[in-house]
Nucleic acid binder design. Structure first.
Length: 115
DNA sequence: CTTCTGACA
DNA sequence: TGTCAGTA
């Protein structure tokens, strides 16, 4: 019964807060959403409601994009992470971010000169 | 007033 | 991506 832990999974943050927390424009956030990189909850009037996990994810996405990855490549990274998450025990979940940053640095740009 | 979707001078 | 339009 965890009742006093911060619910980073609860989507209650409005666009204005996410905008300030991430430094991204709402245009970018909405774009990432329509690209299926995030799936924020929807409130009255279709207003997006983000969780702290979404905020983390947004920052992740921004990192990859800055690094030169395309939206498609980020999706591929997600798939490869989902696989490793399926065959890995909870104790190794802590390596998730490490793997993510690892992939970021490896960055195998097949000829495409980005940035 | 804030957010949303669609569109492009 | 920015930004403007027309809503909700």
């Amino acid at each position: 019964m965890s009742g006093r832990e911060l619910r980073r999974d609860l989507a209650v943050l409005p666009m204005s807060v996410v905008r300030e927390l991430t430094g991204l424009t709402d245009r970018q956030v909405r774009y990432y959403d329509q690209q299926g990189l995030i799936e924020p909850h929807r409130g009255a009037g279709k207003q997006r409601r983000f969780s702290l996990e979404d905020v983390d994810r947004l920052l992740q996405i921004a990192e990859y994009l800055d690094a030169g990855y395309t939206v498609a490549e980020i999706h591929e990274v997600d798939q490869k992470q989902q696989r490793k998450q399926k065959n890995t025990d909870p104790s190794e979940e802590s390596l998730r971010h490490i793997l993510a940053d690892e992939l970021l640095n490896i960055g195998r740009f097949n000829g495409q000169q980005r940035f």
